[in-house]
Design a protein around this nucleic acid. Structure first.
Lengths: 341, 341
DNA sequence: CCATCGAATGGAACCGGTTCCACATGGTCG
DNA sequence: CGACCATGTGGAACCGGTTCCATTCGATGG
């Protein structure tokens, strides 16, 4: 293929001048610049990013480590990251980090370290101290989305607070028999989101002085998971709670479908709240605490770029808490027998 | 950082021997090989893929061009591609191709061409002749998922046939008032999937000699889209069809939810079929024609790898039709008044 | 008027690997 | 026993850029 030497020859200048003309660095006269540009266009020249990276040490490529791409939150975050990176002129190399430990090690040692990425964004992946040290020793900025990791910047919502807030919303409506339909505490993501969202509800109930035996049922973190779980929970009229705090909107939506299936009206017979702001929430009238994963992805990129372009060495580690917003729809009301205020 | 020259020095061999020892190419004695490996481990050496790519011309990196990551089909395909690529020791660079024409051109000219990828997989993106020529001139294999493109290999299901088949399923149950709830023909993806799935239904109806005025309503290709569309279509008892062929499972699921909302029983009062095999289909009892996007992604990678590893020049372009499978669940039955055979 | 400086350019080193080629050695075969 | 070949190793060129350094030239200024 055509190399910069060909361009230089055609334009009648040296390699170095051609390089300067095309990259815009250093002194080049207007005249030679257009001459070089014309020559480049004539032979369809494109820089080899490999060669450029080799000498500059920057790849203009960011690695994204993410456990799923087919779940709402992760897909949205990924979209946010992708848009922001493209906008900044960076490539995005995707590593889906399966739970498989061997594969995980391979991805780190084999892929991420090979000087192919300038930075890493970890989405809901708790990097080990070893992994962090490895990347840091290579001078690569890292940002974590979804949870704090020692020694690196991170960005997430406050999951405990989110869940407590939604529970307080139900309490304020007069509910006292509240249950959490959330993720399995043993199978949760690295940052213990499942535990935190359960904890938030319990904090709220404790603060209100409400007993809460039998307050939790573990289900898969999906719509079918919430559906199956809710069928079981709502099936027995005797022990039925008057309100459900779902671990996420997927679970909440599954629960709404299950309730309808059982002929239980939402919100009259059971109130249901979610956390997330899933794009199906509107359709199901779900009251939820919206978070904005696209913005989270964009913010992570912004933090990465600050670090990459900052001359004054690595910045301090930041802890950014991302905003959430209560969206009240039609899935919550006062429990039967209690007047709405 | 440590370069291969450092390893060589430490091991007391030449650069070339060190390279051979670490890459496994060429003759190296067992003894020196372990010596070099030990030296490499001692100083934490990792190859620079940039340097290697520069000289070999292979990047071990595949570009994936995809319009969405937050829709079921695309997320599944992406997952299939990612797994297969990691397994083959390749990286995956993701380009989400927005409808924005300027950005699209930028992605091609600026990103894809810069010798950073060995091959390209296009998911539901109709590359222009110019784009194909560009990539081919660089010797990069391309595989298209989701539709045929002149001059390159492709892999997809037969969308017309799929839709015709599902319509025939409804016809065989005795339905005659069948309607298509599908994607907007003007806003469809590059490969006219929307048109094809509409066409399939019409072919089946024509073949059965059934008149089908007012047989189509365009809706967004999502669950809320199907929901809203079905509310409108099913709302009027007079003109209500006895069966709906949805353009995809998302639309079908939205329609099922809408029907339940309206108090219309599925399948007794209206049968609904989808196409896709969405992971919510089971929960909603949806009869659908399953396709297997994860397999499609894996197959695409396989085709790419064949081309990359084949010594005997570029292979011929292939047209692979991927398998589908009818999954009958509880959303279809004979129309009211017609005995089930 | 000569020193100084900025603009413009070319030459050459360099980034970190891979690979071609030359050379040495020892074993096998005709 | 010489030819040949497989094995093993080092030297050097090369991939395609970027950047440092030296050089030239014209303008500025003391």
């Amino acid at each position: 293929m055509s190399a910069i030497a060909d361009v230089a020859r055609l334009a009648g200048v040296s390699k170095s001048t051609a390089s300067r003309a095309l990259s815009g660095r250093g002194y080049v006269s207007e005249q030679t610049k257009t001459k070089v540009e014309r020559a480049a266009a004539a032979i369809g020249y494109v820089v080899s990013s490999n060669a450029a990276s080799l000498v500059t040490g920057r790849t203009r490529n960011v690695g994204v480590v993410i456990p799923f791409v087919n779940r709402w939150f992760f897909a949205e975050v990924l979209e946010g990251i992708e848009s922001a990176l493209i906008g900044a002129g960076y490539d995005l190399t995707l590593y889906r980090l399966s739970p498989n430990a061997a594969l995980r090690e391979r991805i780190f040692d084999y892929f991420l370290v090979r000087k192919r990425v300038d930075a890493v964004i970890a989405v809901d992946v708790a990097l080990t101290a070893h992994e962090v040290a490895l990347l840091k020793s290579l001078g690569k900025p890292i940002v974590s989305i979804g949870g704090d990791i020692d020694g690196i910047s991170s960005l997430s919502i406050d999951d405990v607070r989110a869940s407590r807030f939604m529970t307080e919303h139900l309490l304020s409506l007069g509910h006292t028999r509240i249950m959490h339909l959330g993720g399995d505490l043993n199978e949760q993501m690295d940052f213990r989101v499942h535990t935190q969202r359960l904890t938030g509800m319990r904090e709220a109930l404790d603060a209100a002085g409400i007993e809460h035996p039998d307050d939790f049922r573990a289900v898969p973190y999906t719509i079918p998971g919430g559906y199956a779980g809710a069928l079981a929970v709502l099936g027995d009229p005797g022990s039925r709670p008057t309100a459900i705090v779902a671990g996420c909107d997927e679970i909440a939506i599954g629960a709404i479908v299950a309730a309808r299936q059982l002929g239980i009206t939402v919100p009259e017979q059971v109130s249901i709240v979610g956390i997330d702001g899933h794009n199906l929430a509107e359709m199901f009238g779900l009251t939820t605490l919206e978070q904005y994963p696209v913005d989270q992805g964009a913010k992570a990129v912004e933090m990465i770029m600050e670090r990459l372009t900052s001359d004054r060495g690595p910045l301090e580690d930041e802890r950014v808490t991302m905003p959430v917003h209560l969206k009240v729809r039609r899935s919550t009301t006062a429990p039967a027998g209690v007047a709405v205020r």
